[in-house]
Amino acid sequence: MFEFKLTAPGQGSAPSGAEEQLYDLIVLGGGPAGLTAAIYAGRARLKTLVLTGYLPGGQPANTDVVENFPAFPDGVSGPELAQRLQQHAQRFGARLELDEAVGVDFSARPFVIRTPKATYQGKTVIIAAGAVPRRLGVSGEERFFGRGVSSCATCGGFFYRDKEVVVVGGGDSALAEGLFLTRFARLVTIIHRRDELRATKIYRERALAHPKIRFLLSTVVEEILGDQTVSGVRVRNVKTGQVSTIQADGVFVYVGMQPQTELFAGQLALDAQGYIISDRRQRTSVPGVFVAGDVQDPLYRQIVVAAGTGAIAAMEAEKFLGEYPDVSV
């Protein structure tokens, strides 16, 4: 499995002097968006700190094989991609810390970031804290996640040619991805806990009419079954109480995403769903605070798209520092 090694500058205990705790840029999040931001910032010789969180690597670290990150024609394992991004950022001088912000103050200049270990100051901040798929919270889900259980049909659908898969959820995403999976899978079973679908009409009509899709409504998944790989799901009909087993080689969970933004509420403008609001230049409502990746993107949620926003955010942060060199003092 994934192994994390700190090999670059910044290895060892956190420095103590206040001066050394002041950074040109502090990146919150160690996924593709945050690390690409760190690559660009390091390359621009900004003194950069990345707080990766305790499970660095972001979403891809949970993914078995990443096939759609451009320039990796043979595919790359999620953990390997995560490690490559970390090493790339470190090569350009970014300091990576296995640490997580527990408090931020964007009213102060420089900005203040507190972690359980230290307090850091940043002239600029890029938030790349990501979003996590909501989980079902059932037995077997954790064990098979990334190996048969997934939250991304566009990432893994290709592997299920002529196989049977289960999609959990009843919204647009669930149906859209279920329809997507019909291009590969022999049979797609969409399981939804309510007796009607929330998805918009066009998806409902298409999915209901599709010969490869069947629905199990008023049904909840209680367990994901399997030995080495996923073999099926145990479900229960909430009306009749009847329990049965559905055979499946893959389970796709679409019960919504959760942007990791609780920490910023009240300091940055968030939309109704908790995503950080930003403009095309990745600027937030606070000048000097930028945002990248899934924490601001309910639409695409792709590694390369996250990386692209990371690059933009870093270049904008650099520009900001050029325009306001004295922001810190």
Binding site: N68, G171, D172, A199, L299, Q302, V305
Partner: peptide, 25 residues
């Protein structure tokens, strides 16, 4: 990144979906 985004928009266009929409469900 734009290449990925445009491709996803094209995919939706060809499959009769007008535009990408966020899913809060």
């Amino acid at each position: 990144a734009e290449g990925a985004q445009v491709a996803m928009a094209v995919d939706r266009y060809l499959h009769g979906r007008e535009k990408l929409r966020p899913d809060w469900s």
